[in-house]
């Protein structure tokens, strides 16, 4: 097997006295999509925040392309330059136009000349169906458009890995589709992604690997067909039953 892009080994994380991740193992192969599923509070978002070094883990280790990024000697900025993140609440910069949001990191972090960065940003925006919006400010856009801008901003630096943290949770149902279709396109381009999501139908369709988290532990891991079709663990079955009852699968 090829070397995983992202590898978690026995990752443990506490907040105060609360144990959020209790020894999580995970491998993400290149050009694959991993979906993290589980109830709110199961540790999905924390796992993503740890992978991007927004949180310091207590124990265990995280590797990006084989290099340990949780080593205190590693440069967190260099790590984050190679990982893109899309947040649930978009977190766009309200004082910048869409184009400036997307070109900020390429220009200031990666030193891409202005004209080149803008050209590439327009290409991306074009592909995400935001061609006419480059000069607008984020607050003028709909939620779905804002989230697509956030995705454009994250992929503009050609990250090695893209982390998506419940990116449709704050969207109206009719806007969810437009954002998910963007993610589908990214998968077709071969982007390696880890997605924390409540959209089970989407996870089933798009994920190469599905991870069920509960109380900070990965209880079940396998292909979408395995986890959704024939779950081995009682906890997973119970969770999926609740989802089905809620009409979400």
């Amino acid at each position: 097997m090829t070397e995983p892009v992202l590898r978690l080994e026995q990752v443990r994380k506490t907040y105060g006295g609360a144990l959020v991740l209790r020894g999580v193992d995970l491998d993400v192969a290149p050009h694959t999509v991993t979906a993290l599923i589980g109830a709110s509070g199961s540790g999905k978002s924390t796992l993503l925040r740890c992978a991007n070094l927004l949180e310091e883990i207590d124990d265990g280790a995280i590797f990006l392309d084989g290099a340990e990024i949780t080593d205190p000697r590693a440069d967190p900025d260099a790590v984050r330059r190679r990982i893109g993140v899309v947040f649930q609440a978009y977190n766009l910069f309200p004082h910048m136009t869409v184009l400036d949001n997307v070109t900020l990191a390429p220009r200031r972090v990666h030193g891409v000349p202005r004209a080149e960065a803008q050209e590439r940003a327009r290409e991306i925006l074009d592909r995400l169906g935001l061609a006419g919006r480059a000069a607008d400010y984020p607050d003028r856009l709909s939620g779905g458009q804002q989230q697509r801008v956030a995705i454009a901003r994250a992929v503009a630096v050609r990250p090695r890995l893209l982390l998506l943290d419940e990116i449709t949770a704050a969207l109206d149902p009719e806007l969810v589709g437009e954002v998910l279709s963007v993610v589908r396109d990214l998968k077709d381009d071969g982007m390696t992604m880890v997605i924390a999501t409540h959209e089970m139908g989407f996870a089933r369709e798009v994920a190469d690997q599905v991870c069920f988290l509960d109380e900070g532990v990965v209880h079940e891991r396998g292909t979408a067909a395995e986890v959704f079709g024939a779950p081995r663990e009682e906890r997973t079955r119970r969770f999926l039953r609740r989802i089905v009852e809620a009409g979400r699968l």
Binding site: Y15, A18, G41, E215, G216
Partner: peptide
């Protein structure tokens, strides 16, 4: 959001 789980494992 995280539901607090007290440390009760033998870590």
């Amino acid at each position: 959001m995280t539901v607090p789980v007290r440390e009760k494992d033998d870590y």
